[in-house]
Structure formats: structure tokens, C-alpha cells
Amino acid sequence: MRFSRYPLITGGPWLLLLLTFFVLPIAGLLLLSLSPGNGSAAAFPTLDNYRGILDLASGRPQVLARTLGVALGVVLLATLIALPVAYYLAKGVRSTRLQALVLMLVTVTFLVGPLIRTVSWRGILGVKGLINTALTSSGLLDAPIMALLYGRPAVIAAMTYNSFPFMLFTLFLAMRTIDDRYLVAARDLGASANATFWRIVMPLAAPGLCVGAVLVFVPTLSTVLEPEMLGGTSGRLTTTEIRDQFFHALNWPLGSALTVLLIVAGGLAVGLLAALLALFARACGRVGLSLGSGGGR
């Protein structure tokens, strides 16, 4: 028996750490969310916080729906950006150096961290930012567009910017593991380039798409920086509410309840997303989305 096979030595430390500092805190959140909030006279196990949150009049369900909607939109955008690039890099480019170079450039900008990445968008979308400067100096616009910054489009642009590398990497790795001979066989049997992509590549890359979608969705769901720095007043999300409850209103039970709600809603959304993507992949493989070209069946 080799040491590396002992489950207690290899898996033990990490799993133990998770049990104490990951499961316990989340259980703590759950307990605290059942405690009476500030100014409430209720006894310990109470659902008051949840009633307050789920009350439509408080506006919080709408904010939660917006949070989930924004995150799903970001997943969609990240997929649209990453899908053609991953395909091109994995199957179109022969040179691994070129592949590594492109991925490395993305990695470098990614590892600079969400804070700087978010701040950098001010220089792009601001009144004297890159877009407005380019548009006005080229004469396309007389006056800069003020509304680019401090609104939901800016928040979504930055959120996508901060998370799409996850989608790019997982899709790239998934597509790279597809055997080139499948593509050759498809082409030999008369499939068009489009048919090959939708009926061979997409179904085989579906697991990567699923993992990428989750890896984009989850961090996007927990962002505070983008709505705060670029969102102005219109960009309130559940995450900024959680931060405010913990640091400004100091109503920890309510903050905990909001956090629990975010986990539950996020978990449900992840499950739904995975199911939808699996369905999509099967549809691609079976029905054959040949998108107009003569591939078809």
C-alpha cells in the first residue's frame, strides 16, 4: 500500500478543514438567519427575516430576481464571447505557442484581480473615456454619451469581463480533448463546417460548457464591486444589500437570511442551468442544428 493511496492522509486534511470552516459557518448563517432581527421581539426560531425578505412590498424579491437575471445574462454573454474563440484556438490554430500566448494574455488580465479590472472600466465608459473620446473625436457624436457609466450595461460589461475567462478555459480544454479524427470523419461523410460544429463539437464539448457556465455564474452572483463602482443608484443587487446589512445597517440576522436566500436561489439556478445545457447538447446531437447550410442529415 502506497502512502498516496491512503484516503485519510490525502483527503483528510482538506475535508476536515472544509467541515470546520466551511460547513460550520454556513450552518451558523442558517442559525443566525432564524434569530430575531434588529428591533424584533420574536423568540429564537423565527421566520421573520425571511418573511421580510420575501415580502414583495420590500422590493427585495425584485432585487433578487434582477441579481439572478444579470448573472444569467453574464453567462450567456461569456458563452457568446468564449465559444468561437475556444473553437478557433482548440481546432483552428495548429501552433500550441499561439494557443498558449492568447490564453496567457487573457490569464494575465484575469489575475490582475476583480478590483482593478472593475476600476479599469471607468476609463472605457466614462464621459471622457475611451469610447466617448473615440466617438466624439471622430465626429460621429457631437457630445459624449453620459449614460454609458453608472448603469446596468456598465455593470454587466464589467461582470462579463471579470468572469468570461473561466468559460474560455473550460471550453478550450473540453474542445482540445475532442479527437481530431471525429472532425475528419464528419467532413469525409459530407458534413458542412457548420454541421460539424453543431453536431460533433458542441455535444462533445457540452460538459465543458456546463462547468464553464457554473464557474461564471457563481462568482458573478457574489459580486459587490461592479454594482458599487459602476452601477450608480440603479444597480442595486442582493449582494450589495448583504454587504449593507452587515456593515451599515448592522442587522446581521437579516443579512444572514439574505445570504441563505442567495445560496438557495443560486443553487436552484445552477441546477436549472445545467439541465438546460444538457438538453441543448442533446438537441444539438440529435436534431442537428445545421443552421442553414447543407449539412443537415
Binding site: 466551511f22 459557518p25 457554473v214 457563481v218 448583504i242 445570504t259 445560496i263
Partner: peptide, 18 residues
């Protein structure tokens, strides 16, 4: 691998509370 699919904010708030 659960930490990969739980929002960082949840971990942050949970640790603080606990």
C-alpha cells in the same frame, strides 16, 4: 470541490458570523 460553486460572499459572511 464545493467551494468552487459557493459564492465567495457567502463564505465571507459565514466566516464572519461564525
Amino acid at each position: 470541490f464545493l467551494p468552487l460553486v459557493v459564492p465567495v460572499l457567502v463564505l465571507a459572511a459565514g466566516l464572519q458570523v461564525a
